[in-house]
Design a protein around this nucleic acid. Structure first.
Lengths: 107, 107
DNA sequence: ACAATAGTTAGATGTTTAGCTAAATATCAA
DNA sequence: TTGATATTTAGCTAAACATCTAACTATTGT
């Protein structure tokens, strides 16, 4: 949980995820979009891997990164839901689940 | 944007927000829920204030913090939506807005 | 085997962060 | 004014982070 938000707290990493939204890309392709060194990008990729937001697939010389949308969704929406935000409607009693009344502390 | 995710990347701060979900609370009340010093909590409050996730209201000796749900919602859901996550249905063509086809890079 | 290409590891530097204690500030009550 | 309460500021440490260059590993083409 913390790992996901930490990963998302960096603009470069957020843009990487956005780029991967369209299609999987190799580390090199992704790096070309940024004005930082390869090792720096490598570290960003590691952060995204550790947060499980991307999946790395090595093939030949290059490594292709794939977005793990479901992990992003679970983290983002799951957290949002603990605040009554998310899927359903807008004001008061219109919700699917009654926005509850129970104690739910986040990790 | 980065500020919000940065704020959310700390478990203590996430729990503070969760506590504030129920009702506004003073700095002292909030601090009582955590095993860290008051100055440390004060720093966490500052981070939340800077991210605009809470609103501080001084009255007398104490300062009452209020959750700014709308800011959390805008950040979380806004970001989620750039990935086609969020409000609407689950699989493919069921969405309200066609999940677009346009270039949207995050800040 | 050699060189080129794709990434990562190592090591250094400067910045940020979370935490602490001690001291300062502000408010209120006596 | 003196004291108690609530919170912040100052100053510190230790760990984590983002960044770099240089060197290394792995793969492929010649």
């Amino acid at each position: 949980m913390s790992g996901v938000f930490k990963a998302l707290s960096d603009p470069t990493r957020r843009r990487v995820l956005q780029l991967l939204r369209k299609r999987p890309m190799t580390a090199g392709e992704l790096s070309d979009h940024f004005a930082v060194s390869k090792p720096t990008m490598s570290a960003h990729f590691a952060a995204l891997r550790e947060a499980n937001l991307v999946h790395a697939e090595k093939s030949g010389k290059s490594i292709t990164y794939h977005l793990r949308l479901s992990v992003l969704e679970d983290a983002l929406m799951g957290f949002a839901q603990t605040f009554g935000l998310g899927a359903d409607a807008d004001d008061a009693q219109a919700e699917t689940k009654p926005t509850d009344t129970k104690e739910e502390i986040p990790s």
